[in-house]
Amino acid sequence: MRTLLVALPGLILAGIGLTHPHHLDASTAQWWQNMHIILAVIFPLLGAAQWVLLDESPKYVRYPGRVLAFGFVVFYGALDALAGIGGGAMTLANGGRSAADEPLFKIGNQLGTFGAWCFLAASVAIVVCALLKHRLKALPGTVFLLVGSYLFLDSHIYWPKGVIACTCIAVGLAAISYASASGRSTIEDSTRT
């Protein structure tokens, strides 16, 4: 169940990314705004998935990793609130883009970039701990998670790069969770005998 739950946010984001407009204008503003209201609920679940996978890490990794996951939730959420919801609302109100909405996008993108770097750093913490603990069993998940987290730095969820990033993140988180769960069951079986 945990494996499915940590994969679900990335898969939902990839699906929504297929509909993300590449440009904000009067014709896309309504969906742009509404989509980012939905995303404001889904993006924090990526940070929650990281939080869960950091549970088995040593404290000296777990606490900084969770601070980074929290940083992702806060700063990337600010991007969605400002450039997504706010930018869409201003475009709707003005009947199109205007110079007045540029500060929303500028600060939103700056905060979102910081949040994406927090996500990558938390992913690195997860990957290092997974490789040390589960070795080759964790390798596929770590590759997917690192590739997805790197692509996510500058792709948001736009098609195609952002959709690929979110799909890789989902597969990576799920594979690491699965490796961890199968590692635990092997240890539990050996202690019973």
Results as ranks from 00 to 15, higher is better:
Val73Ser: 11
Gly65Met: 13
Ile126Leu: 05
Leu136Ala: 06
Ile107Trp: 04
Glu188Cys: 07
Arg62Lys: 15
Tyr158Trp: 11
Ala181Ile: 11
Ala7Gln: 08
Trp51Lys: 09
Leu46Val: 02
Cys118Glu: 12
Tyr158Val: 01
Gln30Glu: 04
Leu82Ile: 10
Phe72Cys: 03
Gln50Leu: 14
Lys137Gln: 10
Leu104Asp: 12
Ala29Ser: 13
Ile85His: 11
Leu132Asp: 06
Ala122Leu: 01
Gln30Ser: 15
Leu146Pro: 10
Gly112His: 10
Ile169Arg: 02
Gly86Glu: 10
Gly87Thr: 14
Gly172Trp: 01
His156Pro: 00
Tyr63Val: 04
Ala49Thr: 08
Cys166Ile: 00
His23Gly: 00
Cys129Ile: 06
Arg62Ile: 11
Gly148Trp: 02
Asp154Ser: 14
Pro44Val: 09
Glu102Val: 13
Leu131Asn: 06
Ile85Ser: 07
Tyr60Glu: 14
Leu4Glu: 11
Thr3Phe: 01
Leu146Val: 12
Tyr76Thr: 03
Gly115Leu: 03
Gly95Ile: 14
Leu18Asp: 04
Gln50Pro: 06
Tyr178Phe: 13
Ala49Val: 04
Ala125Arg: 09
Arg192Leu: 07
Trp117Leu: 15
Ile169Leu: 13
Trp51Tyr: 15
Leu54Glu: 05
Cys118Asn: 09
Val128His: 00
Ile187Cys: 08
Trp117Ile: 15
Gly88Asn: 12
Glu102Ala: 09
Ala40Asn: 15
Val127Ile: 15
Thr113Ile: 10
Gly71Phe: 04
Asp80Pro: 00
Ile187Phe: 13
Leu79Ser: 00
Leu24Glu: 01
Gly15Asp: 02
Ile187Thr: 14
Asp80Lys: 05
Ile126Pro: 02
Phe119Ala: 03
Leu79Pro: 07
Thr167His: 02
Tyr150Cys: 14
Ala99Ser: 12
Gly95Lys: 14
Thr28Glu: 05
Ala40Ser: 14
Gly108Met: 05
Leu4Arg: 12
Gly108Ile: 06
Ser123Ala: 02
Val163Ser: 01
Pro160Tyr: 00
Ala179Gln: 10
Phe152Arg: 07
Thr193Arg: 09
Leu53Ala: 00
Lys133Ser: 15
Lys59Ile: 10
Ile38Gly: 04
Ala181Glu: 13
Met1Gln: 03
Leu79Met: 03
Ser180Lys: 03
Pro58His: 07
Leu92Cys: 04
Thr91Glu: 08
Ala138Gly: 04
His36Asn: 07
Ala179His: 04
Ala170Arg: 03
Val163Cys: 00
Ser57Met: 11
Val6Tyr: 02
Ser180Leu: 09
Ala116Met: 08
Val74Met: 13
Leu53Asp: 01
Ser182Lys: 14
Ile85Ala: 12
Leu68Glu: 05
Gly87Pro: 02
Asp55Phe: 06
